[in-house]
């Protein structure tokens, strides 16, 4: 059953990922990307990484994809043959990557254990990983968490200052 679910998610990911680059209409591409993101999130859930799954949907599907769509719609990209000159490069890079994967797979030296010692999060598997991340975020890592909130504040203020009309005098020098 578990492998059936895996093959469903993996199959849909491969099909939709191919569609992203194969479809002519950029909006359709973006929509297949969305379907792919959801299935990647599903894959994470089967691995018991619920937090990562939620982040995958919120950040990628919610924020990054919307950004793509905005750009596509604002720029109104109509010309389809714009990027076709990159074909040879894409083939070259793709084959290189494939060769690398094949090399690692055939050598049989796939590292199973993580590279270094386990981080603090691995220990808290008794509770769900979302809870343990939340707990660590608000206790051990409270200080960086608050600093991150300040960064967001600055970004917000900056966006207003740099984009709002009429708050800076247009003095001609």
């Amino acid at each position: 059953m578990a492998s059936l679910i895996f093959f469903y998610f993996a199959g849909v990911i491969i099909v939709t990922a191919t569609l992203v680059v194969a479809l002519r209409n950029p909006v359709f591409s973006a929509l297949s990307l969305l379907v792919m993101f959801f299935h990647v999130a599903g894959l994470y859930v089967t691995l018991h990484a619920e937090f990562l799954a939620a982040i995958q949907i919120i950040v990628y599907a919610g924020a990054i994809l919307v950004l793509y769509l905005f750009v596509v719609m604002l720029l109104n990209v109509k010309r389809e043959d714009q990027y076709h000159r990159q074909g040879p490069v894409a083939v070259f890079l793709g084959l290189t990557l494939l060769a690398e994967v094949a090399l690692v797979a055939l050598s049989g030296e796939v590292p199973v254990a993580p590279l270094g010692p386990q981080g603090p999060l691995a220990a808290g598997s008794a509770v769900g990983n979302t809870e343990s991340i939340g707990e660590v975020l608000y206790t051990t890592y409270l200080f960086p968490f608050e600093v991150a909130s300040l960064i967001l504040l600055v970004a917000m203020v900056g966006a207003v200052i740099l984009s709002k009309k009429g708050i800076l005098g247009s003095k001609s020098s």
Partner: peptide, 10 residues
Amino acid sequence: IELMSIPLYI
């Protein structure tokens, strides 16, 4: 570093 830099960019 980020909190220092972003106001500088602005």
